[in-house]
Amino acid sequence: MKLTPKQKKFADEYIKTGNAMQSAITAGYSEAYAKARSSEMSENVGIKSYIEERMAEIKSKRIMDIEEAVEILTSIARGELKETVVVGTPVGAETVEKEADLKTRISALKEIMKRYPGNDKLVEQQIRKLSAEADIAEANAREVTDNGTANEIRVIGFDRRAEEDERS
């Protein structure tokens, strides 16, 4: 059933507002007609099916597909996607744009690799090694607050885990 331009406008407005009477008035119907017939209009088979089709279109556009997800993960892995963080300064707080840290970038790479079943064991080992290096780098960054002995123990522990992962 083909809808008139007024009926289409009514349906589009009804999708936006959910208010049948106001949608009818906005579509160009008189206020008296809108009061008397707006609920009937929303039950009209043609208008109802048009609204259902439009709602399905809107819903499908709001859901991310796999391609979009991989594109976002790729931009994170490349350091292109920035996040806003609040940093405390002696004067107060300020916002700074920063790229993802090494661990987050590695996680993004792992997620991308899961989507490609042809990845091999060498790639997995390289990712594990990079993860271990990221853990070591993070531990070294904390060295400012830790004493040297505790930090050495932690780094040695990470090296052993990386070696064990490479052997398996």
Results as ranks from 00 to 15, higher is better:
90 P>T: 12
2 K>C: 02
2 K>G: 04
113 M>E: 09
116 Y>V: 15
95 T>Y: 04
15 I>N: 08
39 S>P: 07
103 K>C: 09
63 I>N: 01
113 M>L: 12
8 K>H: 11
38 S>Q: 05
148 G>H: 11
16 K>V: 05
153 I>W: 07
149 T>G: 13
95 T>C: 11
18 G>F: 14
108 A>E: 10
16 K>H: 09
115 R>S: 06
116 Y>D: 15
64 M>H: 13
55 M>S: 03
165 D>E: 13
73 L>R: 07
142 R>C: 09
1 M>K: 00
74 T>D: 09
142 R>L: 11
102 L>R: 07
150 A>W: 05
41 M>S: 05
41 M>G: 07
34 A>N: 08
35 K>C: 04
15 I>F: 14
18 G>A: 04
86 V>E: 01
138 E>M: 11
160 R>H: 10
121 K>W: 15
98 K>M: 01
80 E>V: 03
73 L>C: 04
141 A>W: 12
37 R>Q: 07
15 I>M: 06
24 A>R: 04
31 E>P: 15
9 K>M: 11
32 A>V: 01
81 L>T: 12
54 R>C: 00
5 P>V: 00
94 E>P: 06
137 A>G: 14
57 E>V: 04
60 S>P: 01
4 T>E: 12
148 G>D: 11
27 A>K: 12
16 K>S: 06
44 N>S: 03
122 L>H: 12
40 E>Q: 13
115 R>T: 11
28 G>L: 10
128 R>G: 12
81 L>M: 07
153 I>K: 06
164 E>P: 01
154 R>G: 15
141 A>T: 15
39 S>K: 12
126 Q>N: 15
4 T>S: 12
142 R>F: 05
143 E>H: 08
152 E>A: 08
42 S>L: 14
17 T>F: 06
140 N>D: 03
36 A>F: 00
57 E>H: 04
122 L>T: 04
141 A>C: 14
24 A>H: 05
69 A>D: 05
3 L>W: 01
166 E>K: 05
12 D>V: 01
82 K>Q: 10
67 E>T: 10
112 I>C: 02
134 A>T: 13
128 R>N: 14
120 D>P: 15
122 L>V: 07
62 R>W: 00
31 E>W: 13
24 A>L: 03
107 S>V: 15
58 I>P: 08
105 R>Y: 00
120 D>N: 13
2 K>H: 11
40 E>T: 04
103 K>P: 11
160 R>G: 14
106 I>S: 08
36 A>Q: 11
68 E>C: 13
48 K>I: 11
139 A>C: 12
87 V>K: 08
151 N>P: 10
154 R>E: 14
100 A>P: 05
21 M>V: 01
158 F>L: 13
63 I>Q: 01
167 R>N: 02
166 E>P: 00
161 R>P: 02
